[in-house]
Nucleic acid binder design. Structure first.
Lengths: 201, 201
DNA sequence: ATAAAATGATGACAGGTGTCATATCGAGTC
DNA sequence: GACTCGATATGACACCTGTCATCATTTTAT
């Protein structure tokens, strides 16, 4: 019996997956949760064989949860199940050594088979993502540049960012300028768009 | 037997819903499609009792499909099933006189019951959205202002927008300025954010 | 038919933004 | 110890942006 925990914030999908997986004879859904914090708790409590983690959830992202599980050396295998084919996400997941990375655009049957493969010690990646593994683009942004971009993304002004980070606004503009050039775009907002698409924030 | 068509672009959710609904004795899923165009075709072909429409799909949005169904006077009842609690979406849906508007954050059981109610002539709205029906905010943006904002959202520059719409850049800035003031924000980008949240684009 | 909106344009101004050259400082590296 | 690199700062410049006043034209409403 494969014991699993499902972490997914959209109730309808979470419930649907749980019901369908429960129908499989060799699978038992021991817990369903809707955010990253609860996911960690549930994994500690139930010690499942593996967990399905959505990435974009409240509190802790699925990637954060994956990293913690691996750091703490928990035996629970990790399967990321997400909408987003972002190179940066995949890279973080690979670095955390997760067992699978699937897109929600796969059929359920693919998920079920992936679960069995992972349980038996295998690894699975959605075929659409296979390319990303080779032609992987490194995140060109420095820590500071990411920080500044994140704040712009939240809607903050140059001045607000400057005081948040205890910098002058000139310096903030320098970081933005550097980021804009590294990303080969023309404005801070295009920079945010591109960095977000790539999963670099 | 309630015959339904499911239009939802995320394969995993679509398949899961189809499988689960199929398990209900009084429901038959006659077609599953992944975009708005196919939805219209399927509805014409199969003449289902009702259809589940996601809003954000390729080609035609679920709202577009709903409007066409109602304009053409097709007997198919329409249930919108979406992630987004945006007042503007709900308003468009109400104007199109759809039979139901549900959030994907509802449990499946809610969906199943809603399907039965709608089949029997009822209407259903996710409880979280009930407020929006009363305190409904009108879209304050003119057609032109929306057009310009949409183009900014695509990442176009003022000059590009000007030549796309055959306007001078001064005029483009005027529309943006008007939109920014109507939305009570400080920049074109905040304007996009707010308008998008409200479902006004 | 006439008033009121909406559409489109222009020019001007203040302030924001992106770029660049340049300088300092500290942490590594050779 | 000299050198390089990243983080930080400054000042200057050109260009972009948001606002406003003003005007002409076309649509819409009464």
């Amino acid at each position: 019996m494969i014991r699993i925990v499902i972490a997914e914030d959209q109730q309808m999908l979470r419930g649907a997956l749980a019901s369908l997986l429960q129908l499989e004879e060799d699978i038992e859904v021991v817990a369903q949760v809707s955010n990253g914090d609860e996911a960690l708790q549930a994994i500690n409590t139930y010690q499942p064989d593996l967990c399905l983690l959505d990435i974009e959830m409240p509190e802790l992202s699925g990637l954060d949860v994956a990293e913690r599980i691996k750091q703490e050396g928990l035996p629970c295998k990790v399967m990321i199940v997400t909408t987003f084919a972002r190179p940066g996400y995949l890279e973080r997941a690979m670095e955390a050594k997760v067992e699978a990375y699937l897109l929600k655009d796969e059929p359920i049957q693919f998920l079920v088979e992936a679960i069995r493969k992972v349980y038996q010690g295998g690894r699975v990646i959605s075929p659409e993502l296979a390319n990303f593994l080779f032609e992987k683009e490194e995140n060109p942004l420095s820590e500071r540049e990411q920080e500044v971009l994140r704040l712009v993304a939240e809607g903050k002004s140059t001045d607000e960012i400057a005081s948040t980070l205890y910098l002058t606004k000139g310096t903030v503009r320098n970081y933005l300028s550097a980021a804009i050039q590294k990303l080969e775009v023309n404005s801070r907002h295009q920079a945010i768009k591109k960095a977000t698409e790539k999963g670099w924030l």
